[in-house]
């Protein structure tokens, strides 16, 4: 594999991880709860596009928004099953309810599609692009582009719309948001929809480049968890940077050394980062006020 291909591959993987991690961050900020099923939701998105591509002959560019919308709708259902009944419980309780739904999703996919990895539809038809003598893998570029658009869109919505301001107000202080008349429950449902939509996009992008199997969710979730934590808990740009770091280990370090050595090094790096910066690479360094 050429250096350019490898880099493009790493960026594509990092971009997909970033989408999973961003959904994770949105839910954490809005509810304080860790959604352990975020990876399984991405896998579900992957299988959804596999099924859609099998059922109707549509180009990837059309399938993507359909899959995202469908997954967003499912995100609301997910919230009503795993989060809303437990919203007054400590966060660890929601951790378990999302694990339970993750088990349901994983085994649902296993029952419907079987355990073998499946190939999802491509985003764009055709082979590699040639740009002034460089051969660039088209799918990887498309994945990076789609992710950039999704992140920019998310940024725009969060920072420059009234809806985004309400969403952020809910995330920062739900009590206060309720006091000024923001429908907090509706905002949280929207947050789950957004997060699950992003997971759906990640699932489709990953399923073409790296295949999708029912058991992939846990690994995806772990990678998103690492990305979010070393990036500084609850920070959007930190999560993106964290996702790229994780992908760097899984592609470039893995090729230079070996898959298992890269895995080991990644976890040691995580411990190292937390040893030096207990609140993540981009987390605030000041302590809590007494």
């Amino acid at each position: 594999m050429s250096a350019i291909q490898l880099t493009a591959n790493g960026l594509a993987l990092g971009a997909s991880y970033a989408l999973v991690a961003l959904g994770f961050v949105l839910i954490v900020n809005a509810t304080g709860a860790v959604n352990f099923a975020q990876g399984d939701l991405a896998v579900a998105g992957g299988f959804l596009t596999v099924a859609l591509a099998g059922a109707m002959n549509l180009p990837g560019g059309v399938l993507l928004p359909i899959a995202m919308a469908a997954m967003a709708g499912f995100g609301v259902v997910f919230a009503y099953l795993a989060y809303f009944p437990l919203r007054r419980q400590p966060p660890a309780t929601v951790f378990i309810s999302t694990i339970a739904l993750g088990i349901v999703l994983e085994n649902g996919a296993n029952g419907l599609f079987g355990a073998a990895p499946r190939l999802g539809p491509p985003l764009l038809p055709g082979g590699p692009v040639e740009l002034s003598g460089l051969v660039l893998p088209r799918q990887s570029l498309a994945i990076v582009a789609v992710t950039c658009v999704a992140i920019a869109g998310l940024h725009l919505v969060l920072m420059h719309t009234q809806f985004g301001r309400r969403l952020r107000a809910t995330a920062q202080d739900a009590e206060m948001a309720r006091a000024v008349g923001i429908p907090v429950g509706v905002m949280i449902a929207w947050t789950f929809a957004l997060a699950t939509g992003l997971a759906g996009a990640a699932g489709m992008l990953l399923s073409n480049q790296f295949f999708v199997a029912p058991g992939d969710g846990t690994n995806l979730m772990l990678k998103a968890y690492i990305a979010v934590t070393i990036g500084g808990w609850g920070r959007v740009w930190g999560a993106v940077a964290g996702a790229l770091i994780v992908a760097f280990f899984e592609t470039i370090v893995a090729v230079l050394l070996s898959q298992s050595a890269a895995e080991m090094l990644l976890y040691l790096a995580v411990l190292g980062v937390l040893g030096l910066r207990p609140r993540g690479l981009f987390g605030e360094t000041i302590g809590r006020r007494a």
Binding site: L86, T93, S97, I99, A100, I103, E106, N107, N110, G111
Partner: peptide, 19 residues
């Protein structure tokens, strides 16, 4: 093969009923 799925549902039901 849907056994684990039912297991997940039972887990979810238990935690909702007895958090």
């Amino acid at each position: 093969r849907y056994g684990p799925l039912v297991y997940g549902l039972a887990l979810l039901a238990t935690i909702v009923v007895a958090p």
